[in-house]
Design a protein around this nucleic acid. Structure first.
Lengths: 217, 217
DNA sequence: AGTATTGTTGAATCGAGATTCAAATACGCG
DNA sequence: CGCGTATTTGAATCTCGATTCAACAATACT
């Protein structure tokens, strides 16, 4: 059959296997955020990546593998970002405040949190997703424990319970209020959510947590 | 075309419009729990109801209407059950404990909580689901506020903050730990979740909440 | 340069689930 | 009972996304 030279001026260039797979993971992540963990379609992912469905299948013969990688990547990105934002802060109180902020969505369209919300329902039926979320939860608890214990050791926090319990509650509150913000709760917006979690943190640490809040960035 | 008399011995009987619609709402609710809010198929609902897909469409030409009713019914059932379980209890401390228990799943397969978890992700994309969940959240907060304020008025609770804040945190913790239990978190099972929420409740009410716990039923 | 390999397209095919609908059945009512 | 209406079936059809694959383009290799 006769074919003319393909005009690729408006298309994504051909890429190496590794690069393209990374692109696809990212495209899948964005597609899931837009269409849901279970409602997402192959063509939507392909479109996000600027490719055709055939190309996607070439790299990921089984869509489920791509979706798992996408969720994994999304969680990793979320967690790394939290660590990074609080990274340079020495003062436990400020570090705690910053960490709490970083665990809540910036608004109803916050990509990181939306992805996690998508996963929540599926986790009950899909063990892989369940274990991804479980792992994330535990890592976040450890992160909080480190802050809490440092603060307690320095005498600035007076913990109203074990650090694991407090850490779990902090992560749990973040999760739940994240869902509220994403669902556009009329009276719980991003700022209100931060204040609610901070309220618990004050109670649990005995610290006012009102130092000049660092730039939210 | 020749047809023999239908053998309905093993089938659901023909029903009135209202009865059948109620059946379908319930079948849809169960189908969603099994297959997900967005992954559920018409045939699965039909099978749950013991009917064919045609019959389902006859009553609900638009599947989305049925699904919304199913979610609504599931939430209503969940909320009513909570109210009922704590209904006869006069002592605020016992009432609080019972209410907390009733808001958490009994195990990873708890139908009521699973349905709510399914909804969480979709709520970000679907305003109807979002408002359903928002409404439920607010109603649960009010429920807790009533208990908290009664206890405070009687002098048995010493609230560590406004009743609305505490109520919101209680509902939020229930939600989040509900997700953990449903996702089969290895160290947060149904009992651990109750204990975590109770821990916060103790902190917030200044009450040990350790009276002989009423039969969990 | 020529050749092999890899990545991508686009059209054809497949298949599962939704939708339609005529026929059949059950029910209500005179 | 017999008629009219409501409910349900089951098969046909429709739709749309997944899957396959031959052709072709870009890159790597020698």
């Amino acid at each position: 059959m006769l074919r003319v030279r393909m005009d690729r001026s408006d298309m994504t260039q051909r890429k190496s296997r590794a690069d393209r797979r990374a692109d696809l993971v990212d495209a899948a992540r964005r597609a899931v955020i837009r269409h849901g963990a279970e409602g997402v379609h192959l063509n939507q992912i392909a479109e996000m990546a600027g490719l055709t469905s055939g190309a996607v299948l070439y790299h990921y013969p089984d869509l489920r593998d791509l979706l798992i990688e996408a969720h994994h990547a999304g969680m990793e990105r979320f967690y790394e970002q939290r660590i990074r934002k609080a990274g340079g802060i020495a003062d436990p109180a400020q570090k705690l405040v910053t960490t709490i902020r970083s665990g809540l969505p910036e608004g109803p369209d916050d990509a990181g949190v939306r992805l996690l919300c998508e996963l929540g329902g599926a986790a009950g039926r899909n063990p892989v997703y369940g274990s991804l979320l479980t792992t994330l939860f535990d890592r976040q608890v450890s992160m909080y424990q480190a802050i809490l214990e440092t603060g307690a050791a320095q005498g600035v926090f007076t913990l109203a319970g074990g650090s694991e319990t407090i850490g779990r509650n902090l992560v749990a509150l973040e999760d739940a209020y994240g869902y509220r913000v994403i669902a556009r709760h009329h009276s719980i917006d991003a700022e209100a959510a931060v204040e609610l979690v901070l309220g618990y943190a004050r109670l649990a640490t005995g610290h006012p947590l009102d130092g000049a809040v660092p730039q939210p960035r």
